[in-house]
Design a protein around this nucleic acid. Structure first.
Length: 438
RNA sequence: GUGGCGGUAGCUCAGCUGGUAGAGCCCCGGGUUGUGGUCCCGGUGGUCGGGGGUUCGAGUCCCCUCCGCCACCCCA
């Protein structure tokens, strides 16, 4: 019986890679431009790390973690998100001694056991940007603006930005009390689910899909009206900076996050074209108490994570395919070992070359050369070789032993090779239409 | 986790009320053609997701299961 990929996992085939690669390359380029350094943390951590930081009541902890015991009886968990591990590394390696803030980014797989659907996988990749060690509201805005730049470069479109502030230790407890009081008063009017939520995680009652509950909650106090002076001021600066960046956003007073560690700024980039189940392509916010919760000194932080598959689905542009520089075909009389040695020589000089390994006929090899979009095709017939480019012969026939020297003496178009050429290539095109993001 | 729809060649799909499988694309070969393009001919390829049952006989009916997708839920 055939073995398929496990439920909720995804193979990225070579044909899928260009589009996905464009998103990753855009992120890497932007990280460099904004001075974020790559951080790599393990794919699994002590279960305790996530249990403590995500919130015991969160869905992630309650039912979505891949938790297992290793052979020594340690409880480990495949990381369901990337922020807590980065914070853990920050504390563990004393990154507070480095110039603050420490700005990092990561790209890697995350694991969540949930029912799979399009754009929603059990193993999925996230791009995350985290800045720790500064409470400057301009940093919140930088991170948001940074994502719009990734979107622009990867040609992601149709997203909008939702924004809110959920307060801090000063004001949130008082707000939660007011909300609890309100919910207690209307308890009779609420459905069971909302009631449960009111008890476990009051802020999340607003996530309800029930029309009735929504009407009841319409008069509920919102966190925005309850922010303390410091939070109000912080939020105002975030908004002012976003205005200065020319970034549009929608204030959503009921926007909260599924993880407990968030404070103050929270935001979400949404693509409504993707369907409600996976419309959120990037989400994040500030987490000023996270680092002390895992044993570090009180250190503010802010960041976001984006779903690679979802971003790619949101119309990320397919980079133009770049054909090979050279394809070499030869007939049965040709001295193949020596031809292949010539090909190796071409590759050594930086030309991207390929040959047939499928035993194709000469016609089949030419077809394959066409598929490879090779700039130039070398035809070896017996002892003689000739070169074609764009359907026309280049120069005269020459001995098959001189393929490399012939091609190097008749240069083709200039090579376009440079790091991350995938994104650069489209960056050079007209992107004015995408400038309206979000 | 709950409910619903679907799983036939690598891909997109057809297959009426049950009688042991087809098309297009792709791929390979040949021919045509002074482009690696086009066109023509031929060919490879499927234990009909898996298992059990009903039946003389099941892709087609029933049950279980796996996988995908949608809604809810939640999230990236």
């Amino acid at each position: 019986m055939k073995i398929g990929a496990p439920r909720g996992t995804l193979d990225v085939l070579p044909a899928d890679e260009p589009r996905r690669g464009a998103v990753l390359a855009a992120s890497e380029d932007v990280a460099e431009l904004y001075a974020y350094g790559r951080i790599v943390t393990p794919t699994f951590e002590h279960t305790e790390l996530f249990a403590r930081t995500s919130g015991a009541g969160s869905d992630v902890v309650q039912k979505e973690m891949y938790t297992f015991e290793d052979r020594s009886g340690r409880s480990l968990t495949l990381r369901p998100e990337g922020t807590a591990p980065v914070a853990r590394a920050y504390v563990e390696h004393g990154l507070h001694r480095e110039p603050q803030p420490v700005k990092t980014f990561y790209i890697g797989p995350m694991y969540r056991y949930s029912r799979p659907a399009k754009g929603r996988y059990r193993e999925f990749w996230q791009i995350g940007f985290e800045a720790m060690g500064s409470d400057d509201p301009a940093l919140d805005a930088e991170l948001i603006q940074l994502f719009t730049e990734i979107e622009r470069r990867a040609a992601v479109h149709h997203t909008r930005l939702e924004l809110n502030s959920i307060g801090d230790r000063e004001c949130r407890p008082a707000y939660v009390e007011r909300l609890r009081a309100f919910l207690a008063e209307r308890r009779a009017d609420l459905d069971d689910e909302t009631r449960t939520r009111a008890d476990v995680s009051p802020l999340r009652v607003f996530d309800t899909g029930s029309e009735h509950a929504r009407r009841v909650l319409a008069d509920a106090p919102t966190i925005g009206d309850s922010l303390c002076g410091a939070c109000r001021e912080h939020f105002a600066v975030v908004r002012g900076q976003l205005d200065a960046y020319g970034i549009e956003y929608e204030l959503v007073p009921t926007l909260v996050r599924g993880l407990d560690y968030y404070t103050r700024t929270v935001f979400e980039f949404v693509n409504d074209d993707l369907g409600s189940a996976q419309s959120s392509i990037c989400a994040g916010g500030r987490y000023d108490y996270l680092i002390e919760e895992i044993g570090g000194a009180p250190t503010p932080g802010v960041g976001w994570a984006a779903g690679v598959e979802r971003v790619s689905m949101s119309g990320a542009r397919e980079p133009e395919e770049r054909g090979l520089d050279v394809f070499v075909v030869c007939d049965e009389q040709a001295d193949r070992p020596r031809v292949l040695a010539q090909v190796a020589e071409l590759r050594r000089t930086g030309l991207r070359c390929d040959v047939d390994y499928a035993g194709r006929s000469l016609k089949g090899q030419m077809t394959q050369a066409g598929r490879s979009k090779a700039e130039r095709v070398v035809r070896v017939i017996g002892e003689r070789a000739s070169v074609r480019a764009g359907g026309a012969d280049v120069g005269d026939e020459f001995p098959a032993t001189e393929i490399a020297s012939f091609l190097l003496g008749h240069p083709g178009p200039p090579p376009a090779s440079e790091p991350n050429a995938k994104t650069r290539a489209h960056g050079a095109r007209d992107v004015s239409k995408e400038e309206q993001i979000p």
